[in-house]
Structure formats: structure tokens, C-alpha cells
Write a protein that binds this DNA or RNA. Structure first.
Lengths: 118, 118
DNA sequence: TATACTGTTATATTATAATATAACAGTATA
DNA sequence: TATACTGTTATATTATAATATAACAGTATA
């Protein structure tokens, strides 16, 4: 799901955009060959300047996720095949966590720390 | 665990520092009253300039996590009590994911997307 | 009291991120 | 072929992040 960038998160806007588009590809919401919204539409969707959109798209191009055709649009190049089981494991975990009294930010901090140290 | 900042992640160094220290407090590795390493030691631990350390500590002070005494040091102010069960849920999830063939970065992207949309 | 630690304040410099704005160039189609 | 879409290139400006460096100020202790 493509949504407004969080301008207070501290994470650079162009990186948030890169992450959102990657997620769409990872989850299969954007498949190989699919066309992205136009750069001027993306500017509105993410609520940033057009140059910020271009910076993000440039990075995705360099990483081989998308390609562009002048005058036509941006298209998904790579289909990334993520194990459905992995998504299921994460869905289950998130569902359990949401039943508890923990916010997203705290959950992410713990997740990161546990991943990197155990 | 306090470790070197990742200078290529794109996330500002001072924020990475804030997150690492918060994690230590959240996981109980730094408890109320505990003294942090000196700013000059932290500079070495995180591999950044002293001003970057100070910026992070200032933020943690503003959020009420730590306090400082000139000439003495920085101390943990808040003890954050995180449900042990929550940590267990995350440990289990991470353990399952590490058995699969998924990297940290991809896992985080999916985690974020699932959390924000389901 | 001298010394070696603590934190604190300040200034200057460089790189990066984000914005605003304009103009150019290719494509599809009424 | 005119029009309205696409992407692309370029320039200038502002804010933020990070660095280097120096000097100041409080605390603990040999």
C-alpha cells in the first residue's frame, strides 16, 4: 500500500518511498511488468517533491527492481518470490503482538535487537 | 548491545544511537539508575563524532529516558516495563524466520507492511 | 591541591536531503 | 497534427546531519 511519507520519522523520505515500493513488490501487490503510477501521481501519493520521487525511483532502478521508458512510464522488472510461509509467520506474529499492548515502534526496536543478537 | 552505527543504512547515525540505547532499556539490559559509558567512550563504541553522540543523548533526555549530571555521567531515568511475553513472541518469530532463507532487511519490510495494513 | 576523569558549549565546514520551479523530450491518441 | 499525457534534465535555495576542533566547567580522588 502506497501512502504518505512520515515526515517526522527521521528516516529520509526517499528511503521510505523505496521501502514502500519494495514492499509492494515483495508482497506480490505489484507484479512483474506492472506499471507504477506516473511520477506526478506518486508526488501526490507520497506528498513530496517530484525530485524526491525521482531519487527513490533512481535507486530502485539501480537495484534492478524497476525500469523506465521515457514518455511511457515505470514498470516492475523483478518479480521477487518470497516464501508464502515466511509471510504467514510474520502475519501470525504481528497478530499476536497487536493483541498485546505494544506499539509498532517498540515492537520494531525489540525485533531488531533480537535479530541482531540472538 | 551497543555497536557501531551502520553508515550505509541511510538512517541518520544519531537515530540509530537513540534506537540502540532505547533497545537496551526496553530489554532490561540497562536498568533504572544504571550509568551509561562516558560520551567519549560512546564516541568510540558507535564510531561517530562526539557531537553526534550528544545529539542522540539530548533526544533521549527530552524523551525522559535518561538524565545527566555534569562531571559525573549519564544515567537511565525510566525503567520501561515490557511484557516478557511480548519479547518471547518476537524471539520465537525471529527464530522461525532465521530457519527460513530470509534476510533481516526483507523481514523488516514485510513486518512493517503487514503491521500497517492488516 | 594537582590530575584525570566526567559533561557542556561553541564555531566553522562539508555533504546530503528536500524543496521550488522551469524547460525539454518522448508517446499515445482524438 | 494538436493535445495531453508520460519521463528527464537542470539550477538555485534551505534545512539537516555529521564532522573536526577547541575550550570551558564540574567531580572524584591519589
Amino acid at each position: 500500500m502506497l501512502r504518505k511519507v512520515d515526515k517526522h520519522s527521521g528516516v529520509p523520505a526517499y528511503l521510505q518511498i523505496v521501502n514502500m515500493i519494495k514492499s509492494e513488490i515483495l508482497l506480490g501487490n505489484l507484479q512483474k511488468g506492472a506499471q507504477l503510477p506516473s511520477v506526478r501521481d506518486l508526488q501526490v501519493i507520497f506528498d513530496v517533491n517530484i525530485n524526491t520521487v525521482l531519487k527513490a525511483l533512481e535507486k530502485l532502478k539501480n537495484e534492478g527492481y524497476i525500469e523506465s521508458e521515457q514518455g511511457v512510464g515505470y514498470f516492475v522488472k523483478k518479480d521477487i518470490d518470497v516464501n508464502k510461509e515466511v509471510i504467514e509467520i510474520i502475519r501470525e506474529c504481528v497478530s499476536k503482538l497487536k493483541n498485546g499492548r505494544i506499539d509498532y515502534y517498540t515492537a520494531m526496536l525489540i525485533f531488531e535487537e533480537v535479530w541482531k543478537n540472538e
